[in-house]
Design a protein around this nucleic acid. Structure first.
Lengths: 200, 200
DNA sequence: GACCGACTGTACAGACCGTTCTGGTAATGT
DNA sequence: ACATTACCAGAACGGTCTGTACAGTCGGTC
């Protein structure tokens, strides 16, 4: 274990990952070259290649880190803010709104990355696991909330989630989150028996 | 005016535009180089530059052509298939589904292009006019259909339209169109007074 | 002191990029 | 007959890209 001294430094791997995250997300994985990343991270180019193997490896690590960050934020905030499964189902869209408010928000990182790669890229595999996670997040909550057809509701909410991200990005309007929450509320009410009744 | 002889050829501009459209859309504007485009179009490289000025000019022409194509398809199909403004409002999502069914569908071209450019690019201006057109399409139809708040309904439907495109693309599921149509139906019913009543 | 792993800095190869230039052909309008 | 226009094939240019090679630095460990 490295000792925590006053001259403690953030390790090169972490610096590379944050630099790559900022640049890739802001300008696209294809536009940003490795030279700019190593310059921003204050890391030698050789270090990048020993740690990640190739630029593609760094891109994969970047997307994996994004997924992990969104997942952590979602789970933490949902648990902290909402009581019932139904409220958490709606809360997903409020937490998504937190992302919209971040400075430099540029839409879903996976949408952006997929737009830049041809079919069969390694990026697509990571995208599939991300999409599967998002869908199962909605599916599990819909199940827990007592939806008549959790599968169907999950599909609807994924669509709204996607649309909210695109609209917020392309129209530069973070307020889209409340719009999405309202639509989601309608869909949830319609999908859960006695969804509109107050309580029991 | 060029005479229509037996050796009539499709002009170079058109060939370039279709070649660029296929390649840019399938692989991204940044991934595809001009060499591949001129090779596919059977055009000299100099011709590209006399006709479009630069690669960026070709990208702009590609996006403009995409916009025009979608607009024409939308207007033609909406007029041919549906009678009332309310049916046309819903029909937008069915026509969008026609795009999903096209072989090689890869989502909205403007979403893809925007993911590849940094802020301030000329692509963003074209995107704004495209987004404004889409929004006004919904807004005008919502008005015509007697929506209580056409602005609000248009915003909702733009979000659903965006979400449908992303979901259909990322999950490779053209059936998303019927899902989007169902959601749009709910929103339209809720936004138009007496929307659920049969007729008058 | 010898050793080691993590890291630096620079220089370079090879490919590919957008763009321009040269030089030529075929048809058109006057 | 001549200038113009529209186009073609390909070479050449300067720049940037990923990836590699190599010599060297630093903090700990035996």
């Amino acid at each position: 274990m490295p000792t925590a001294s006053a001259t403690e430094q953030i390790p090169a791997r972490e610096r590379l990952l944050t630099a790559a995250g900022e640049l890739f997300y802001a300008e696209g994985v294809h536009t940003v070259g490795v030279d700019r990343i190593v310059a921003r991270a204050n890391v030698a180019k050789a270090t990048l290649y020993t740690l990640f193997g190739s630029k593609d490896g760094l891109v994969r690590a970047y997307l994996t880190a994004r997924h992990e960050r969104v997942r952590e934020l979602m789970i933490r905030e949902l648990a902290a803010r909402y009581e019932t499964a139904r409220a958490r189902l709606l809360g997903v869209f409020e937490v998504q709104g937190l992302l919209f408010d971040e400075p430099g928000f540029r839409g879903c990182a996976f949408v952006g990355a997929n737009a830049e790669v041809a079919d069969g890229s390694s990026v697509q595999e990571l995208t599939e696991t991300y999409r599967a996670w998002l869908r199962s997040l909605f599916h599990d909550l819909a199940n827990e909330a007592g939806a008549a057809d959790p599968e169907a509701l999950a599909g609807q909410l994924v669509l709204v989630y996607d649309g909210a991200g695109i609209s917020a990005w392309m129209d530069r309007n973070p307020g889209t989150a409340t719009l999405a929450t309202a639509i989601a509320g309608m869909l949830i009410d319609a999908a859960i028996p006695d969804g509109k009744e107050a309580s029991r």
